[in-house]
Nucleic acid binder design. Structure first.
Lengths: 223, 223
DNA sequence: TGACTGAATTATGAATTCATAATTCATTAT
DNA sequence: ATAATGAATTATGAATTCATAATTCAGTCA
């Protein structure tokens, strides 16, 4: 805390910044199906803003790869195909592996304890079959590792890519076998974290992502 | 070629897309020093556009991290500090390592021949002391590996990060010892590429980037 | 002389307007 | 009935306008 009073500046985000966040969430929730047109005018109405900030926001999202802008024909929800998944997952795996390596060097005992708590919760939600809750814990643990890595640029790149790959379509649909495997993998991950074994954790995270990708491909191929 | 006639659509990029590219180049060339204010009005004049596309472009560049937008106070050239370099380089190294691994699996003999040509040219420019020409060959070889990896998402993430880290300030300033070392490293890199030794190439690229970073830090610390 | 106040100026964020491009739809000709 | 044409409608890209926030600067007072 810098100032003596502890008073922080009033947060005054610009419209376009807020729109970027809200739109990204909307798109991740599949409010508009991938490949469909984004109804700019309707959105302006819904958010009660004019076209200027909305279009600024769409351009930022386009640079992130979440939407696609076709000149003179508007904005479309970027459609992820298998090729894009195939390209994206190795990159995601490399970033997570790096996060694991860095995290080992800096993670505190408190954070490790938290990771263990999340892992236990995951196992519990797996047993009770609560996919949504499991998914939340899963995200929490990966976020924890990213945060422990304490590398803002890594976090940012990871976030950008994860957002791009994680459309609702591919969200929480793993078959039972894969789900069980994922739980096991997480046990191993948290154990490597506890031992602060950077090389092992790095490797585990990489194969974890790789396996998730393989499972996803199977799902997509089957429909 | 899809159509029988071979006629391709007329390229009609929007103003903001062109501005993004031109501004990024300007900023990389240190047309405005890091940390300085970006004179929006002047730029509009220079490019003969109105504020709307210019501001759209600045917002895209802000999401890339090249400029910083302060609400109600305009756009500033993002200043890279040592912490950011420290955070960015491991990520860059991981991405290059992945690129090397993927490239080994797909690179053609023709591409390898090109890589060898670039490496020879680099050595020659090193001997003649032509830093600028050396730098170009260096970029060409790294680009070649990225392209051989044939992973558009990897290319995109790499590009975004490289742009962010490579301000003119840190551009072509290596001391003689580091320069000689870099030339050697490149010989090893192209040799691993020739043998399509994925693990070795991956490792070599990682340490190559790591060494470059160390040299940079030394330069910055000295001034 | 130097620090404070507040008016004038300038810059910024956002809405609106305008020109042009794309799309839709009715009309016509086959 | 169907395809082609062109007018009407709608959407998009970009410029302009407008309200508000920030900055500058002259004037005032200690």
């Amino acid at each position: 805390m810098k100032s003596k009073t502890g008073v922080t500046p009033i947060d005054r985000p610009s419209l376009h910044a807020q729109l970027v966040d809200r739109l990204r969430e909307l798109l991740l929730e599949d409010a508009f199906p991938p490949g469909s047109k984004i109804p700019e005018a309707d959105l302006c109405q819904s958010f009660a803003v004019s076209r200027t900030p909305m279009r600024e926001a769409l351009k930022v999202l386009a640079s992130e790869g979440v939407v696609q802008l076709v000149p003179n024909r508007g904005a479309w929800v970027a459609d992820i195909d298998i090729e894009e998944l195939e390209a994206g997952f190795p990159v995601l795996a490399a970033l997570e592996a790096l996060a694991g390596k860095l995290a080992c060097a800096r993670i505190t005992d408190t954070e490790i304890a938290k990771a263990e708590k999340h892992t236990k919760a995951m196992a519990a939600f797996f047993k009770s079959g609560d996919r949504r809750a499991y998914f939340r814990e899963n995200e929490a643990i990966h976020r924890l590792i990213l945060e422990a890595a304490a590398n803002p640029i890594l976090s940012q790149q990871h976030e950008a890519l994860a957002v791009r790959l994680r459309t609702g379509r591919f969200k929480a649909n793993e078959d039972q076998a894969r789900w069980a495997q994922a739980v096991e993998e997480h046990e191993a991950i948290v154990s490597a974290l506890r031992e602060r074994n950077a090389d092992l954790l790095s490797k585990l995270l990489e194969t974890h992502i790789e396996n998730k990708f393989q499972a996803l491909i199977r799902m997509v191929r089957q429909g």
